[in-house]
Design a binder for these strands. Structure first.
Lengths: 243, 243
DNA sequence: TCAAGCAAGTTGTCTAGACAAGTAAGGAAG
DNA sequence: CTTCCTTACTTGTCTAGACAACTTGCTTGA
């Protein structure tokens, strides 16, 4: 194992235990003497920390320690699992944006509606234990929901659709992917630009008529969130055809 | 302006104009001679390209040029969808590693087995149209599979389990997450370090007895791959990843 | 007093050389 | 013909030294 990797890990734990954000690391020369290695090797180690977003270099001043409260603890506890089926039905969501527009070619294809269809877009942010975790954009064809923009004031969107409009939704398809956050997503989720997001695009149909009533795109922080797939409780015992 | 920045820009335009993905850059020594600079300065320049996701370093081989069309075109053409249910059942996989070890505490918890259990680990790489897309690590408790390491020579692992050992598998749980690639994953998938991977951890049980017979972790390139969830209708709807 | 500038300390860049680690191809031995 | 080993070439790491660029505080001069 490379020396700089060892040093990087040593510095990482040391920062977590003994440094606060705003403080400066010892100079590269001092660290080189302490570890009895060359200064360039120290720099290579600090490069790792910079890449991880733990520290910030300031030429002429030193190496600044940043907030490391939510640093990459992938796989540790504090990880939330959620059934894919439950996606988008949450009540503790806060509205952060409402829009009204006509869908363009690209969105229409994903939404399974005609281009030019008038839709409401509602963006919500979901927090868990106060931490922003998931950002959801709901797209709802206008003709299904007269006056929706007045009705919905937060809470469970799907519950409102059922109580107010008598619609019951069925997820017809979900597409799961991963991507990097935009600047705005990074801000809203308080999440680094160099960490991935988990995305689901869902097409929800009316259970009775089969018409599309909601298309949603959710983006979740991958450091503390994952989706769980579980087989139906009463499966066909015929067996999984795979393999 | 730093020399390495100039060289990085020069190489960037050169790559766009004269190189195709799959080709290798001239060696660092050759580039150093061409630009009349030190090899370390060349390395620093190439670091920029690696960071930008344009090239991939391969120790002992060279510096591989990646597709530069997909840079900002995530979600464009050439995206494969695959049913989550079909995960891990593919036949066109190539074995890239076999291991035999006892599971530690952490893995045991995820695998639903006792710590210390002896397991085979088989790593496979799956390509689509020649492009490496998915990396899968299969973990199989040894006591279920005497002589598996001799039996399996590639192809469909689950088919072998059924034909050779008479086992039929049922996915009990799948956990979907996202993460960044390790250096090795980046190499094997020919994929930049700063682009995300889509991960699924699956616990597959014996359909009859309910015992765990396989735990697998798959990692897929997020630039050209996504998982599809569809409500179960007829059992023969395996995801066709074609085009 | 005030301002210019000097000095010390920091990170940033470049060079130079050495060896380790990994890959691929070709040749030698069986 | 196959297998193993050697060899050449590539990237990866470490060391060493020098100077540039920048920040800060202190000294010096008017």
């Amino acid at each position: 194992m490379a020396i700089y990797e060892d040093v990087a890990r040593a510095l990482e734990t040391e920062i977590r235990e003994k440094f606060r954000s705003g403080e400066y690391l010892p100079s590269e020369i001092q660290l080189a003497q302490r570890f009895s290695i060359n200064r360039h090797t120290v720099r290579r180690a600090i490069d790792e920390l910079v890449q991880a977003g733990m520290v910030l270099r300031q030429q002429g001043k030193g190496t600044l320690v940043l907030e490391h409260s939510l640093q990459y603890q992938i796989g540790a506890r504090g990880r939330f699992s959620e059934s894919v089926e439950a996606m988008g039905h949450h009540s503790e969501a806060r509205i952060i944006g409402r829009y009204f527009h006509r869908v363009d070619e690209q969105l229409a294809q994903k939404m399974w509606v005609e281009p030019g269809t008038e839709v409401f877009q509602i963006d919500t942010l979901r927090r868990i234990d106060g931490k922003p975790v998931t950002l959801i954009s709901h797209y709802l064809p206008k003709h299904h929901f007269p006056d929706l923009e007045l009705q919905y004031q937060g809470g469970s969107l799907h519950a409102l659709l059922e109580s107010r409009y008598g619609l019951q939704l069925t997820r017809k398809q979900g597409l799961i992917s991963a991507g990097m956050p935009t600047r705005q997503e990074s801000l809203l989720l308080q999440y680094p630009r160099n960490m991935p997001l988990l995305k689901i695009r869902s097409n929800n149909l009316c259970t009775r008529t089969g018409a599309l009533v909601e298309y949603s795109v959710s983006r979740s922080r991958a450091d503390c969130f994952e989706y769980k797939i579980e087989p139906r409780q009463n499966p066909r015992t015929e067996g999984d055809p795979s393999s």
